[in-house]
Amino acid sequence: MKGNLISIDDLERSDIEDFLSKASQAEKMSKAEASKILRGHILSTIFLEPSTRTRLSFDAAMKRLGGSTIDLAAEVSSVEKGENIADTSAVVAGYSDICVIRSPYEGTARMVAENTDVPVINGGDGANQHPTQTLLDLYTIKKEFGHIDGLKIGMLGDLKYGRTVHSLAEALDHYDVDIRLISPEETKMPEHIVEKIGIEEEKTELEIEDLDVLYATRIQKERFPDKQEYERVKGEFILNKQRVKEMKKGSILMHPLPRVGEIKPEVDKLPQARYFEQSCNGVPTRMGIILELLGVDKDA
C-alpha cells in the first residue's frame, strides 16, 4: 500500500522517528549528492489556500533532491471554474509522483489520498492537521538536544485555536516529556486534548525560566468569532528581551511563524532564538518526508 502523510494521529513513534531520521540524512547530504536522488521525479502542489513557507519549502525540498515541481494555481484553476477538488486533485496528482495538498476544508487530504495512486501529503486542512509542520518542529527539537525524551516543553499563546500546538502536543504524547501550557483563560487548550495526553501543568502566567523549549504561537485573528476577544488577548504574553533572558542556559525559543508582535525583534539576536532555523529546517524535513513516502533509501 502506498504511504501518505495525512495526520499525526495516524503515526506511531517509530513512523515519526523514520521521518526524522530521513530528514537528518537529507540535511547531511552534499548538494551534489542530494540532487541525483530524485532526478526525473515530479512533485505536484495543490494549494487552495495561501501559503508561503509550506509551499516554498516543498518546492525547495523537491528541487534539492533533483526533482521538479508542478503547481496548481487555485485562482485560475479548474476549481475556480467549478470542478470539484476530488476530480482536480486526482488529475493533477496523476501528472506527478507525489502530491501535496492544502485546503480550507478539513479532511480534504484524506479524500484526495483515496482518489489517487501516488503518495499524498497533507499541507494543512483547515483547523484540523498540518503534520509536516509538526515533524519539522520535532526535527528542530531533536537536532538541538539530540533527543526529545526528558525535555520540559512549554507551549505559549493561542492554544485554543492553533492547530500547530494541537498536533505538536499529540505528537509529543509519544515521548516522555513534561508539557506546560501557558495561555490566557480565553485561549486555553481544548479539554479533550489536555485529557487525552494527560497534561498536568496549565498556567495563566508567563513561567518560562525552567523550560528547555518554549514554543510560542501567533494569536490567529481569523479563528476568533468575536473580534473584541481577539483584541483583548492579543497583547498578553509578549516576549521581549528581558523576559527571554530569564530562560535557562541552553534553552530554545521556537515559533511556527509568521509572528505578529508576540516576539519582539530585539529577541532575534539572543542565544535562545531558534525560530528562523526552525523555519529553515522545513526544507530537510520535507526532503525527508518525500524520500520516506517514495520509499527511497539512498544507502540501499
Partner: peptide, 11 residues
C-alpha cells in the same frame, strides 16, 4: 460545516 464531506465533494 468545514468538513470536506459537507462541501459538495463526492465523498
Amino acid at each position: 460545516p468545514h468538513c470536506v464531506t459537507n462541501t459538495g465533494e463526492p465523498v
